[in-house]
Amino acid sequence: MNKLLKITWYACLALLAGCIEPYDPKVDNREINLLVVDGFINTSGVTTIKLSRAQTLTTKGGPPPETRAVVFIEEEGGRRYPLTEGAAGTYASAPLQLTPGRPVRLHLTTAGRREYASDYSRALVTPPIDSISFRAGEGKLRLYVNTHDALDQARHFRWSYEETWEFTSRFESQLMYRNNALVPRTDNIYRCWGSELPSTIVLGNTLRLSRNVVAEQPLTVLLDTSPKLFIKYSVLVRQYAVTPEEYAYWELLRKNTEQLGTLFDPLPSQLTGNVRSLSDPAEQVLGWVGAQSMTEQRRFIDRNDLPAGWPLVSGYEGCPLDTIPKPKVFPEPTLEEIIRSFSFGMMVPISYNLTADEYYYSTVDCLDCRKRGNNARPSFWR
């Protein structure tokens, strides 16, 4: 994929004015169908590794998984720990407690009998996260992570995070269509929880500091127009201590994925991971498999934690509230016709107004929160 990006960049440069027509160069299939190894060796827990194949930027759908591989973790001169395949291309170990400082690596053999292994990596101990802080102002909510290593063993860090937020649909439906009738609603389509696992690469180091302390490392930014802050928002931050070599790999990957876009951006650099083909030394493999423990911390942010006057944005602002029958429309529909109008699923009844003898309704996208999330309350929610 890097070669494809480079070729496209050079084509744009030659045109000076930018890419007017898309340029689709011929690329060797061997440079597209690269093995991609995604994951790390968790020295204090379950290791999850995803294997897939690279694809071109224009290919639709997700990357094809590499299935039926034999995968295991091996200690240098020691034991082997197998990983078993669950979902296609996803391999997981049993919970492990590996010896800190001992070199370990990932070893795998594909169904096509091609053998690969990562370089041996010294198992690192990741210090705990001290706190997750935030500041709200100027239309933005900025989140930060704070940590320190009292043992002074790790100077390079990587973070990932998972977001969850509570929300409600525009109106609460009290009726539902079932068996050619409108009956009281028994399921919850009003209150849901959304979730997102951003692919943002967050890195930090303390090389230039006298103390091994990370203070307010920027994590993410939410605008005050974000529906994630409508009721309650939660972020789960995961922290990893990494070696200088792994840090350099992630930094290069971050630049390639986040800073490419104009003629004046740097050329995409060739990514060199630490996974090698033992069957063919000339074969390129994408991915870096480090070895470290992982620490995590969750932070909740409630509406009451935000400044007074913070916008109340649900994402349902354009949703209409309508009635059947409509005022001054004749002839009025019969009850049978009203009920039948809800049988198609696009209109959802809300309630019945006895005084006006009319039904309130709206669209399914405005009433069924499951269109944007899950109505099962997360076990960690409070």
Rank of each mutant, 00 (worst) to 15 (best):
D224V: 08
Y316L: 06
R155H: 15
T126Q: 01
S131C: 04
Y316D: 03
R208E: 12
G89L: 06
E85W: 07
S210T: 11
P244N: 03
A87H: 09
H156V: 00
A248M: 11
E75W: 03
L236R: 02
V242G: 00
K228L: 08
P327C: 10
M294T: 10
F300R: 10
W193P: 06
T126S: 02
F344A: 14
S234Q: 12
W381M: 03
S341V: 10
R102T: 12
G62D: 15
N375P: 09
P307I: 06
L229I: 00
E317P: 00
S379C: 04
V285Y: 05
D187A: 10
R68G: 07
K50W: 01
G318H: 13
E76C: 14
E162S: 08
E317M: 01
I338C: 05
S44F: 02
R340M: 07
R238I: 05
G45T: 02
A94S: 12
Q270H: 13
G18K: 09
V237R: 00
W159L: 01
Y91M: 05
T262H: 06
A69D: 02
T43N: 11
S234Y: 08
R170T: 02
R105A: 05
D38K: 03
Q284T: 15
L312K: 15
T225E: 06
R370Q: 14
T186I: 14
L312E: 14
Y144I: 06
A92T: 13
I41C: 02
S131G: 09
R382G: 11
A14H: 12
L271W: 05
L83K: 02
R372E: 10
A376C: 13
M1E: 11
E85A: 06
E166N: 08
L267D: 13
D28T: 06
V145L: 05
A136T: 00
E166T: 03
N29D: 15
R30N: 09
P349G: 03
P333E: 03
T257P: 03
K232I: 11
W288V: 03
T99I: 14
P95D: 11
G89E: 04
S44A: 05
A308D: 14
K26M: 11
L207R: 07
E138P: 02
P82F: 07
L229S: 04
T43I: 12
V221N: 01
E246L: 08
E75K: 05
T56K: 15
V36M: 12
R68D: 13
Y81K: 01
V348K: 10
T186F: 14
L223Y: 10
T186R: 15
G309W: 08
V145Q: 02
N274V: 01
I7C: 07
T257V: 08
K6P: 04
Q217Y: 06
G345T: 01
T84E: 11
P65G: 00
L151F: 09
L143A: 02
F134L: 08
A94W: 04
I201D: 00
V70E: 12
R340I: 11
Q153I: 06
V46Q: 11
P320E: 06
D302A: 14
E358F: 01
A92G: 07
V221S: 04
S121F: 07
V285A: 05
R340K: 15
A92D: 01
E258L: 13
V37K: 00
P320C: 05
V235C: 02
P266K: 06
L4I: 13
C192H: 05
T323S: 09
R185W: 05
Y23A: 11
P327K: 07
G62R: 07
V285C: 07
L182T: 01
A376I: 15
S314Y: 08
